[in-house]
């Protein structure tokens, strides 16, 4: 029994001139719910495709549940559940036909978990999958995934496009059904509100590299928001230690910084600040700032700063 459910070693994937994954070293331990966060193009989908053996890497290696990802056997696949935002299911089949097929194929099928999860959604067994609404299909897909009794459950933006009710039902099923008791869950999302509620561990990917991995509140504690009143131009952004984001609002300088203690106030005063304040930030803001650092900024905003 390996300690890590996912282990990548300098994993690289190249598409033309772009590197979707850039020497990624990722080690996700067994157990708990891990949230994977990253902007679009951070490489999450590519990572999962490679981990499940549907895409070969350009360089490096990837192991999932201790097995080489390019050589997964049918038994291995039976232990890994995967749900993505499209909730792809054969549209022409009936719900009960799909369920029967899954029931027969997965040896650890948990009927009770299936019913518990599906019970949140208004899905009739004789309906065709193509007739279900997006939320119903998502619920059905999740019910199938949980009932498979996986050791590892990977969810790639599963609540995208769901309405509020469906979203809540989905999260409840994920966190409170006993189907996930022995299961490691990897949850990808853009929605910080969800992540904050759900995650035990926060993993941040950016441009194909691992940027951060820790508990969410630990990460949040590293980011602080400083407001300074600097009458002149202010320090060169490149010289500001740990700078994530800089905004000029109403003549005040707003700094979002990483890993800065109280001595940052000294730095600001030394740069000519008349008054300095700081406050903690929400997880949403912290992650946003962290990711925005490497994003392209429209030229107008850069000129202003």
């Amino acid at each position: 029994m390996n300690d890590y459910v996912i282990e990548t070693d300098a994993l690289t994937k190249r598409y033309g001139r772009k590197l979707a994954l850039d020497h990624l070293d990722l080690r996700i331990p067994r157990g708990r719910i891990h949230a994977l966060v990253g902007a679009n193009g951070a490489g999450k989908s590519t990572l999962f495709r490679i981990l499940l053996g549907f895409l070969p890497p350009t360089a490096g290696s990837a192991r999932i549940l201790g097995r080489d990802s390019q050589r997964l056997t049918p038994e291995d696949r039976g232990r890994i559940g995967f749900v993505n935002e499209e909730h792809t299911l054969p549209g022409w089949m009936r719900v009960n036909a799909v369920t029967d097929m899954h029931r027969r194929q997965y040896p650890r099928w948990n009927e009770e978990a299936f019913r518990n999860v599906l019970g949140h959604y208004h899905v009739l067994p004789e309906q065709k999958v193509g007739q279900l609404s997006r939320g119903e299909r998502a619920g059905f897909n999740l019910a199938l995934a949980l009932a498979q009794g996986p050791e590892l459950l990977v969810l790639d933006e599963p609540t995208l496009g769901l309405d509020v009710v469906a979203k809540r039902a989905f999260l409840e099923s994920l966190m409170y059904s006993n189907a996930t008791d022995d299961c490691t869950v990897i949850y990808c999302s853009h929605q910080m509100e969800e992540i904050e509620r759900v995650a035990d561990n926060l993993v941040i990917l950016e441009r194909g590299r691992l940027m951060h991995m820790s508990a969410p509140d630990e990460f949040c504690a590293r980011v602080t928001h400083w407001v300074a009143d600097i009458p002149f131009k202010g320090p060169d952004p490149r010289s500001v230690p740990g700078l994530l984001q800089l905004q000029r609002l109403d003549g005040l300088h707003h700094y979002l910084v990483l890993d800065q203690q109280d001595d940052f106030a000294e730095f600001l005063r030394a740069s000519g600040a008349r008054s300095v304040q700081s406050m903690p930030v929400s997880l949403d803001r912290a992650v946003n700032g962290f990711l925005a650092k490497n994003h392209a900024t429209p030229d107008a905003q850069r000129a202003q700063a």
Partner: peptide
């Protein structure tokens, strides 16, 4: 733990 988690819709570990 589970009951409060479900009431608040948060992770039971929290």
């Amino acid at each position: 733990v589970r009951g409060l988690a479900q009431q608040l819709t948060v992770n039971p570990n929290t």
